[in-house]
């Protein structure tokens, strides 16, 4: 009986911690409250955006190009596998040891973590484009660049976004270890538990989890918005047959 109640109690306390500042467990300072969480969240998002931005700059062109040439599949896949096998904590530790600490280094370390899903998904997305479609495009006189930009890129977008979503969620979760390398993110209350207490630790964990969910949902919406209309059909809609009803309706009205 008491255990579930106690768990609820801690959750309640944690949520209170997000909204109302209180004295630190070690005394002498105010911690928690919306002000502090806003600034921690800001730094967290900033380092996430920097890391994923940097990763996209490298991985997207490379993935698209390799996919277009249908070469280097081995590279794309092994980079992905190796990348996922390296624990991010180790990555950060290596960076501290060799590059020092600070925003740029943390962003770089997190970018390395973000590259594999983006690279693999971009590569796979492009290679999956129907060969006939590309042949038809080439037959109509489209240049290499045009094929990449106008055919392959739009058709690969759903998978590319899938990669981005994975990366963003990974990075949001991993950015919690940034405080050990000089960047004060939402990981601070989790790491400095002696100051923030259990409520602070859990509160930060809740905010991080929410960020990850919001990022996932938001990017999902963005993905749908940029996907060419005929490819869009949400899985839910197709399952319910709405997609077909709609096209059928269209067919009727034009005829």
């Amino acid at each position: 009986m008491s255990t579930p109640l106690a768990i609820l109690g801690i959750f309640g306390d944690a949520i209170d911690f997000i909204f109302n500042a209180r004295e630190a467990r070690t005394g002498g300072a105010e911690v928690g409250g919306l002000g502090e969480f806003a600034s921690l969240t800001g730094k967290h998002l900033l380092v996430t955006v920097a890391a994923v931005g940097l990763a996209s700059l490298v991985a997207l062109p490379l993935g698209l190009y390799l996919g277009h040439k249908r070469r280097g599949g081995f590279l794309a896949v092994s980079v992905s596998n190796v990348g996922r096998a390296v624990p991010s904590l180790v990555l950060i530790a290596l960076f501290i040891a060799f590059l020092g600490v600070g925003f740029a280094n943390v962003a770089l370390a997190l970018a390395l973590l973000a590259i594999p899903p983006i690279l693999t998904n971009a590569y796979v997305g492009v290679t999956q484009v129907d060969r006939d479609v590309i042949d038809a495009a080439v037959g109509q006189g489209l240049t290499d660049g045009q094929v990449m930009r106008q055919i392959e890129l739009p058709l690969a977008l759903p998978l590319i976004f899938g990669g981005l979503r994975t990366s963003v969620v990974n990075v949001i979760a991993t950015a919690t270890i940034a405080p050990i390398a000089g960047v004060v993110t939402l990981g601070d209350p989790i790491i400095s538990q002696s100051v923030y207490g259990d409520a602070g630790k859990l509160a930060a964990a809740i905010v991080v989890a929410l960020l990850a969910v919001v990022a996932e949902v938001g990017l999902g919406a963005a993905q749908r918005a940029v996907t060419p209309a005929p490819l869009r059909g949400t899985p839910g809609a197709t399952r319910r047959g709405r997609f077909f009803v709609k096209t059928a309706g269209k067919g009727l009205s034009t005829s």
Partner: peptide, 28 residues
């Protein structure tokens, strides 16, 4: 499902945190 995921992730992170807090307490 989403709520469950949030809760799970929160608990997971907290668990990771306790490892850190172990070294923290060592420091104290």
């Amino acid at each position: 499902l989403v709520l469950a995921l949030v809760a799970l992730a929160a608990v997971g992170l907290t668990a990771c945190g306790s490892d850190d807090s172990k070294s923290d307490s060592t420091s104290t």
